[in-house]
Amino acid sequence: MDLAILVQLLINGILLGGVYAMAAVGLSLIFGVSGVLNLAHGEFLMLSGFFVYVVYDRLGLNPFLAVALVAPCFFVVGYLFEMGLIRPLALRKEHVRLASATLVTLGVALIVEDATSFASLGGSFEKSVDIFVPTLVLGTVFLPSLKLVIFAVVLALIAALFLFLKYTYIGLAVQAVTQNRRGAVLNGVNTFRINAIAFGIGTFMAAAAGGFEVIHSAVAPDIGLPLTLKYLSIIVMGGLGSFAGVALGGVIIGLGEALVGFYNPAWGQTVAYLLLVAILLVRPKGLLGK
C-alpha cells in the first residue's frame, strides 16, 4: 500500500476512535459508579443533537455555542434521571437490579425515541447543522479539523475527569463507590448523590457528543439504540469502568473500521463486533478491566 494512504487511514481511524470514545466515556463512568447499563445513553445523545439543532435553527446561534449551551443542561437531565428512575432500584439484589435497570433504561429509550419522532412530525425527522470547518491539509494528508477538535476535547475531558476523580472530594467519593460501594457507605459517602453526579456527568458527555454528531453528520430519532450498542461494545472491550480502556477500545475499533473498510466496506463495520467477541474470549474482563 501507498504510504500516504496508510498514513491517512491511520489518522482517520484514530480520529474516529476519538469520536467513539467521547460518548463511550460517559457510559463507562455511569456503569463504573452505579453498575447500570444505561440503554438510554444514545437517546440523550440524539436528543441533545436535536436541541442543538433547534437552538441553531430558531435562535440562529453558532452551532458550537449551541453545544456549549445545551450540553450542560443535560447534566441536570442525567442527574434527575438517576434520582427519579434509577435510585428506586438501588436496594434490589445484584442481578435483579441489573435486570430492572436494563428494563427501565430500555423503556426510557423507547419513550425518548418515539416522543422525538412525534415532536418532529410534520417537519423532517433528520436534522443536520450546516456548517463547514475547513480541513487542515498537510501535503497529501487531510486532517479534518472538526474531528481534531473532538479528539482534543475527548483527551481534555478524560484528563479533567482524571483530575476530578483524583483531587476533589466528590471525585474521590466516586472512585470509592466504584471500587467498593459498601465500604464507601460505611465511610459516610452519600452514594445516591454520587450516582446522580455520575449520571449527570455521563449524560453531559453524551450530550456533547450529540452536539458534534449533529454538526459533523446528522441525527434522527432512531440512531439512539444502535449507537448505545456500539458504545457498550467499546466500553466492554476496554474493560468496564476504565477510562483509558474506553479510549483504547474506541481507537481499536476506529482503526479496525478504517483499515478493513478500505478494502471491504462490509467487513469494516463487522470488525467492531468481531473484535469485541474475540477480545472478551481472551480477556473476559476486557483489555484493561480488573
Binding site: 487511514l9 474516529l16 444502535p226 476506529g254 473500521e257 483499515l259 473498510g261 466496506p265 462490509a266
Partner: peptide
C-alpha cells in the same frame, strides 16, 4: 456500504 455505516473515510 453497510446500511448503518457512519464513517465513510475509507470509502
Amino acid at each position: 456500504a453497510p446500511k448503518d455505516i457512519k464513517d465513510f473515510s475509507s470509502i
